[in-house]
Design a protein around this nucleic acid. Structure first.
Lengths: 197, 197
DNA sequence: GTCTATACATTGATAGAC
DNA sequence: GTCTATCAATGTATAGAC
């Protein structure tokens, strides 16, 4: 998640002068958000520490308050940002449920799985986060239904399935074949969307 | 979860004398474990506070150390106890996957859903809890396979599905019909276990 | 905008009286 | 076994120098 930061936002307007000091440097606010997202993956939303996030971003402690109103503010901004990031990489409109499920289970999505799981579990306690996720789901459901004629129940169950599959890494008691699991998931997705045209 | 405490363990051996002082009182150790489980449901495993658990159990703070070696010890005992409790109420051998899924989604299982979810998510960070869950799953899988001829992959995916469904309460953006959801889940379970004799 | 110093709350744990 | 101090560590936040 932290690897895919966007290009530098601001560009030096000076054409002449020394070689644009703010070029290879990401703005502190964005670095803080990226650091917060990393912290979510590692320690979860509700155990994230403001001090640790600040140090991760290269500044130390109280300097955060020059960029955000406080811990809650930073955390909610980071959560919103990570949600936008996530859906842009996964749930693009033209993708089928099968494709989404496959990508979701790919190895390189492990941090994203963890992130979304942490956010949802934490939402059970943090009301700000809960309403953020609610809005997100409302929006995603609406977008989904512009492409496919699925019921809200189908979409919801599909989403819950993905959340369950997000824990596939945590639980490895026995040797299981990833291919076999992917095949079973495919079957279930077929059954879930069976009556859709 | 806290409502279903067992009967009092120790019984006064005195036949004559005053009316058995330890009769209506649950042993402190057991009360602590029940309180810890309640705390898991409310705040999660890794945010559980020893002091709060103690107060919930009617004693205060340091007295916990007369019953358990410390916070980690109490928490792991409570986690183990709650797992045994959970499987005895849900995954009885003779029950079909459909029945298990239905019961799992029943209203009165909301705290149990939350509990198991919290334990699994926390297991991503707490190694003691992770190995406890691993053992539990190994055992449950072995028991399961004495009754049905499902593959380990089928059992695992079923378990992941249940974990996903555990978040059905957190996410209620739109009005969804519980019956319609149960029906979809039934379909998916059918598809998952399709090739089983 | 970033730092150091500091205030204040919460929490896990120990010591010792009863 | 339970209590009342008490300590050390962590974590959020403010104040003020630079």
């Amino acid at each position: 998640m932290a690897a895919q930061r966007g290009p530098t936002q601001r560009r030096s307007s000076a054409r002449i002068g020394r070689p644009a000091k703010d070029d290879n440097v990401v703005a502190t606010g964005e670095r803080l958000i990226a650091a917060a997202v990393d912290e979510f993956v590692e320690r979860g939303f509700s155990r994230a520490s403001l001090t640790r996030i600040a140090e991760r971003a290269g500044i130390s402690g109280p300097a955060v308050y020059k960029h955000f109103a406080g811990k809650a503010d930073l955390l909610i901004h980071a959560a919103r940002h990570s949600l936008e990031q996530t859906l842009s990489t996964i749930a693009t409109p033209s993708r089928s449920p099968h494709d989404i499920a496959r990508r979701w289970l790919a190895d390189d999505f492990a941090p994203t799985r963890r992130l979304l799981l942490e956010l949802h579990v934490a939402a059970g306690r943090e009301t700000d986060l809960a309403s953020l996720l609610t809005d997100w789901h409302l929006e995603r459901t609406a977008v989904w239904q512009t492409t496919r004629a699925d019921s809200v129940e189908q979409i919801k169950v599909f989403y819950l399935l993905l959340l369950g599959l997000a824990q596939i890494d945590s639980l490895t008691p026995l040797d299981t074949s990833p291919d076999a699991i992917a095949q079973l998931v495919d079957r279930m997705v077929d059954a879930l969307f069976a009556d859709t045209v």
